[in-house]
Design a protein around this nucleic acid. Structure first.
Length: 467
RNA sequence: GACCCCUUCGUCUAGCGGUCAGGACACAACCCUUUCACGGUUGAGACACGGGUUCGAUUCCCGUAGGGGUCGCCA
């Protein structure tokens, strides 16, 4: 049997972190088994579904590089098929018309709650003669769910979970306006799409029982379920906007790499021994449902950040430059030229291991693109004492004579200068740094000079020397 | 309230009857060092509680407590 998984978001908002992980797990499982990963947009709530949300979700999935094997299916296009299944169940005696008004139902729920009884539909119309039906009310179609016994689901994460059928009521399949409910639509679509494995959030656990009843009423195979525990915020409560409940694209904007995000999300609720750094191809080879934990986990930005540093160090320089460019452009208030891009790429080897995000990369490489004369910040200005300036001038003269403009040659020269002056390297490097970058923090000064090139470096040093 | 699920360092987790309870992030100290980082070494830090079962429970069972989820003509 070929595995077919699906990710089925409802487009009422962005793709939040939990959804992103659900998508990742479905994608990984399909890739691991050589199966298919499908996408279904559950847009049956026309009030709340928006085009913007669809766009945001697709964009986030694209950013995370979770590619579906087929074009996304829009659930709203399948309403006729859903209604047809409802009518089929009606004809087979598996469903019935219910004429209760929303007000009556609400009263029923309120009463039940007040008396401390389970809140359920009481089956008023379950066995009532259709001739008693009021002519002025459009009925809904309800599932004639079993009232005795129990419904069991086999869940690859939660194990065997059983609930007494008495706990479940006759859910609505088709609304009075003839449109399908979520419960019906999901089952019909999962069946028609050939979904074999339903991997989704824990919040759908109770839905699994009701959906199983529909599958069984239709005589369809029930897919394998895997209900993944939810992700909570750092405080253990539900994810709120303050922490993880922002869209996945927000993490892109914060300067995280998609591969870091995937690795982080993978390790949140899934483990493979002591392994922490798990590249995507390795994840595909290793991922299995048995590795999913049963307890909810908390979102931890620090760990994501640490992972991001790791992947940044490994990332290709040109790619990092490309990703950093727009962030840098917005800091500088101008676009980067081809020449700028070359400088940025050259700057990456010494830069990428000291920045945790692309945002930091942009911030820390910014000085390369500030035109001369250098404007030192407060700390750098303090370093540039008159003595330091004259030393910078002397070093500039010596440096101008260096044959090869390499970090090694420059370092040898400056070390020699420091020794003759009876100073540590730090004493002379800081003024150089301040003169070159206008800051007191930067990559090693000789790397910086190599990136700037001979001409630009000497110009900066000489300006600092005479200032 | 009813039903269902969960509970190992602060966080993510390993563990699947006998372990000095391991790793990672974060934290602290030290080393490295031209600044900041990276890196390295070391340290502190956990089996929610109470009963069983067993020669022996973190591990199995039952309670308690705490947390979470679900109870719509929303998805």
């Amino acid at each position: 049997m070929t595995v077919v998984t699906r990710f089925a978001p409802s487009p009422t908002g962005f793709l939040h972190i939990g959804g992103a992980r659900t998508a990742l797990f479905n994608w990984l499982y399909a890739r691991h088994t050589g199966g298919k990963f499908l996408l279904r947009i559950e847009d049956t709530d026309r009030e709340r579904s928006t085009q913007e949300a669809i766009g945001a979700i697709m964009e986030s999935l694209a950013w995370l590089e979770l590619d579906a094997d087929e074009e996304p299916l829009f659930q709203s296009t399948r309403a006729e098929r859903h209604a047809e299944v409802a009518r089929e169940m009606l004809a087979a005696g598996k469903a019935y018309h219910c004429y209760c008004s929303p007000e009556e139902l609400q009263a029923m729920r309120d009463a039940a709650r007040a008396e401390g009884r389970p809140v359920r539909y009481d089956g008023t119309w379950r066995d009532r003669d259709p001739s008693e039906a009021p002519s002025d009310i459009k009925p809904v179609i309800r599932l004639k769910a079993p009232q005795e016994g129990e419904t069991k689901i086999i869940d690859r994460v939660q194990g065997e979970v059983t609930v007494a059928n008495a706990q479940l009521d006759d859910l609505i399949l088709l609304r009075s306006d003839g449109t399908p409910t979520y419960m019906l639509a999901v089952v019909v679509d999962d069946h028609d799409m050939g979904i074999t494995h339903v991997i989704r959030g824990d919040d759908h656990m109770t839905n699994a029982f009701r959906q199983t009843q529909i599958f069984e009423a239709m005589g369809w195979d029930v897919p394998v379920f895997a209900h993944v525990p939810l992700i909570h915020g750092p405080d253990g409560a539900k994810l709120s906007k303050r922490h993880g409940a922002v869209g996945a694209e927000a993490y892109r904007d914060m300067g995280f790499l998609p591969e870091a995000m995937r690795n982080y999300l993978l390790r949140l609720g899934w483990g493979h021994g002591d392994d922490e750094i798990i590249a995507t191809d390795q994840a595909i080879a290793w991922f299995d449902l048995d590795g999913i934990g049963r307890s909810p986990s908390r979102f931890d930005m620090a760990k994501l950040t640490a992972l991001n540093l790791h992947y940044m160090k490994q990332a290709d320089d040109a790619r990092l430059a490309r990703l950093t460019a727009p962030l840098l452009a917005s800091r500088l208030g101008r676009d980067l030229s081809e020449r700028d891009m070359a400088v940025l790429t050259d700057a990456m080897p010494s830069m990428k291991e000291r920045a945790k995000t692309l945002l930091e990369l942009a911030e820390q490489t910014e000085f390369y693109f500030h035109a001369r004369p250098v404007t030192p910040d407060e700390k750098a200005a303090k370093v540039l004492t008159p003595e330091a300036r004259s030393a910078i001038g002397e070093m500039a003269d010596e440096l101008s004579a260096v044959a090869e403009w390499t970090p090694e040659a420059m370092e040898a020269l400056v070390r020699g200068y420091a020794e003759r002056a009876g100073l540590g390297l730090g004493k002379v490097a800081q003024p150089l740094r301040a003169a070159l970058t206008g800051r007191t923090v930067s990559p090693p000064v000789f790397d910086v000079m190599a990136v700037f090139g001979r001409e630009e470096s000497l110009a900066r040093l000489r300006e600092a020397a005479v200032a």
